[in-house]
Computed example of a mutant assay.
Amino acid sequence: MKIVQISDTHLTAAGGPTEESFRLLADHLNTTVRPDLVVHSGDIQVLHPDDAGDREHSRQLLDLVDAPLLVIPGNHDVGMPGNNAWAGLVVTDERIAAHESVFGPGHWRHDIDTVTVIGINSELLGSNLQREADQWRWLQQTLEDIGRDRPVLLFLHKPLWAVSEVPTDHQLDVGPVARDRLLSLLGEVDLRAVGSGHLHCHRQTARGAALEVWAPATAFLASDGESLPETRQELGYIEYDVTDADVTASFCAVPGLAQRTQHDVPEIAKAIEAMTAAV
């Protein structure tokens, strides 16, 4: 069984290179890979969670993928928790509701063959919204129901484990409080993989019996000076192979996909300009 993780597509109603890349990816998945399930780990739309046009256009593009597709939100889809949210775009009930009205629930459980796939909204963690408490309650009940009989794959937008010891302006991972609580709950199941996005690069690390997988973006690479050490700086996707409860994860390239940074995507600059003008 093949499960594909895609991430950080940054699609916009203005079209451009990120849409070109996604159309190439969708065709590759449909004609060559033919996965049993696709998970999008967030930052579906280009930058601003309040842009309904980007949201609707992104939904239409995701529908190009033939396989069943499940979505979890990223910070550019619903906003970010904390006082230093990028561009001041803080996660709110309204932004989450708008996202879920188009893409479906921000957290979910999906049983497929011998494994259980779980997606959660990392942008709720530390938000102090009622939705965060509701998600914690749901997750605890769900993991208790699964027990240790089925391997579990968890997906979220931001990495679960700490990314860097160096302080950053914006949140790179879920933070220590949420991490400790999540790991405590996940200790009750047979966790085999944790897939995340957000960082626009690939890395795979063993965390006990589980694989920590940073999925690459499909839209653009991290800019010079923003890339993390010991990572693969290449656009692509992740393929999880599940065979008799054994789970492996592999980086996969998309033939013909141009390796761009955000400076090669003029729609990013236009979106930032529009956001700045609206403030």
Rank of each mutant, 00 (worst) to 15 (best):
R55D: 06
H198K: 13
Q135H: 05
S41I: 09
S21Q: 12
D51E: 11
F103R: 02
A269Y: 07
L160Q: 00
F220K: 04
A219E: 01
H110L: 01
V152P: 00
W86G: 06
G197E: 00
D43Q: 09
N121P: 01
R23A: 13
A222S: 14
S122A: 15
I120C: 01
E267W: 03
D244E: 15
T32Y: 09
L37T: 07
V46N: 12
G147I: 09
H107P: 00
V90T: 13
L11N: 00
G104E: 08
V46Y: 05
A178G: 04
Q171L: 15
H40V: 13
L143H: 00
A215R: 03
D66Q: 14
T12R: 01
R131N: 06
Q130A: 15
T18V: 07
R109Q: 12
L61S: 04
D27A: 14
V194L: 04
T18W: 05
E123G: 04
G74F: 04
L125T: 02
T261K: 10
L235Y: 03
S250D: 14
L124H: 03
L129V: 10
A249I: 06
L143I: 11
Q262E: 12
D93L: 11
D190M: 04
S184R: 09
S227F: 13
L182P: 02
A98R: 15
T116Q: 08
R95D: 07
S223H: 08
L221I: 07
E20K: 15
R150T: 05
D51Y: 07
H76M: 08
V213K: 00
W136M: 09
H110C: 12
F251S: 03
A249T: 07
D77I: 09
P151M: 11
C201M: 07
D169T: 12
F103Y: 11
T92M: 03
P176M: 04
P255E: 06
A97P: 02
H263C: 03
G82K: 01
H200S: 05
Q259F: 08
G88W: 01
R181F: 03
V4M: 03
V213C: 03
A13V: 12
G126N: 04
P49C: 08
G119K: 05
E20C: 09
S250Q: 15
Q135E: 12
E267N: 01
H202A: 08
V174C: 04
S41W: 01
S58Y: 07
A253I: 05
Q45R: 14
S250Y: 04
I44D: 00
E188L: 09
N75I: 07
H202M: 07
L235D: 00
K2I: 12
A206C: 08
L153Q: 09
L139S: 02
A217H: 02
L154E: 00
L37H: 10
T114Q: 12
E19R: 11
G42Q: 05
T92A: 11
L64E: 15
L139P: 02
R179G: 04
T31N: 14
A217C: 02
L89W: 10
D241P: 00
E273S: 12
V242F: 09
H263M: 11
E19D: 10
G82I: 06
H57E: 14
P49G: 12
D169P: 10
P68K: 05
P17N: 05
H107F: 13
V189I: 13
T9M: 10
L24S: 10
R192A: 10
L37S: 04
A85C: 05
